[in-house]
């Protein structure tokens, strides 16, 4: 069979697995762990586009997550909007805000960009945290409505919410995948490898960087809106820079720049944290050094393991062939000597 067929079969299997998962895992608590991992994975796919594809460390991601979450939650609570238009509004607001921030922040380069976006993230966090009149400050918002129902099918049940988030995750992965294999995606990779070179061969660098940034904020915003609708309550904590660092961790563990990376990282970290007591108590005591070790020795993360194995196998194979050839030559040499 052709490799494409195998890949298609693998993707279909994963899709079915995702659909069947909540039926197998009936425990509500475990389901919540999975859904939250999906939501953070969606935001991390956004970070992957700006950091993994384009090579720009944007530290304001949690801020945009918060913008999406609070936009959706406030529209539902204060103006009685439904979940779906509120989600759309969250997407639009995080897109527009992302575009405005992109215009100014992308003029800076390297370290300045990281520091600039960090400041934007902190400002968003502080405004959400302190603007008591609008966001209810540290108390947060409670009673945020869920996705409601489509016709007779209620989406507010645990199962319904799972599938809503699942669909968004699949769409996020699909966008990440198609972007990676499109012309703009390749332009982003070119920018990551060398911005000057990309510019020199005529890539409109600024336009593509803006695209990547806006996509990353849109992903974060939608993930935020899903979070608000799923949890039903919302506090300023989810907009703090620590959440951005968490996304960074998911990305690094899963595999920066890869398609599977964000989901893999989010699931693994969430599960380790939930199910191993030692991870719960000393989460960052372990993950902090893991982050350092990964970036030094293993910057491709888990998603690069198959490639590394393939490469090693190819090398071993080549070595074996070379050795066999050497033995054959030696053998024929000694045979001649014998003759």
């Amino acid at each position: 069979m052709k490799p494409q067929v195998w890949r298609r079969a693998g993707v279909s299997l994963l899709l079915v697995l995702g659909l069947a998962l909540p039926l197998v895992v009936s425990n509500g608590y475990y389901q919540q762990v999975i859904v939250l991992a999906y939501i953070w994975a969606i935001a991390t796919y956004g970070m992957n586009i700006i950091l993994g594809y384009t090579g720009l460390l944007s530290l304001g991601q949690a801020g945009f997550f918060g913008v999406g979450a609070y936009t959706a939650a406030l529209l539902m609570l204060k103006l009685n909007w439904n979940f779906w238009p509120a989600l759309l509004a969250a997407l639009v607001v995080s897109l527009v805000l992302g575009y405005l921030v992109a215009i100014v922040s992308l003029r800076t380069r390297g370290h300045y960009f990281a520091i600039f976006t960090m400041a934007v993230g902190v400002i968003l966090n502080l405004v959400i945290d302190r603007w008591n009149g609008l966001t209810n400050g540290e108390v947060g918002l409670v009673g945020v409505p869920g996705p409601g129902s489509i016709g007779p099918v209620s989406l507010d049940s645990d199962l319904g919410k799972y599938y809503v988030v699942y669909v968004f995750l699949v769409v996020a992965v699909w966008i990440a995948w198609s972007l990676r294999h499109s012309l703009p995606g390749r332009a982003l990779l070119a920018i990551r490898n060398s911005e000057d070179l990309a510019e020199a061969i005529g890539t409109p660098v600024m336009r593509f960087k803006r695209l990547a940034f806006v996509l990353s904020t849109a992903f974060a915003g939608v993930a935020g809106a899903l979070f608000a609708g799923y949890m039903g309550y919302l506090g300023p904590d989810v907009t703090s820079i620590n959440m951005t660092f968490n996304m960074l961790l998911y990305l690094l563990i899963g595999g920066i720049g890869s398609i599977a990376g964000p989901l893999l990282g989010a699931l693994i970290v969430s599960f380790l944290t939930q199910f191993l007591q030692i991870f719960q108590d000393y989460q960052m005591l372990i993950f902090g050094p893991v982050l350092v070790l990964l970036i030094i020795f293993f910057p491709g993360g888990l998603a690069s393991v198959p490639r590394l194995i393939r490469r090693r196998r190819a090398r071993d194979h080549a070595a074996a062939v070379a050795m066999a050839e050497a033995a054959a030559i030696e053998g024929s040499g000694s045979a001649k000597e014998g003759a």
Binding site: L51, L56, L248, M284, F287, G288, P289, V290, V292, I296
Partner: peptide, 13 residues
């Protein structure tokens, strides 16, 4: 970017 990320790891630790 790698050194920046590593410094974040040190910070979390």
């Amino acid at each position: 970017v790698n050194a920046m990320i590593a410094s974040v790891g040190v910070m979390l630790f």
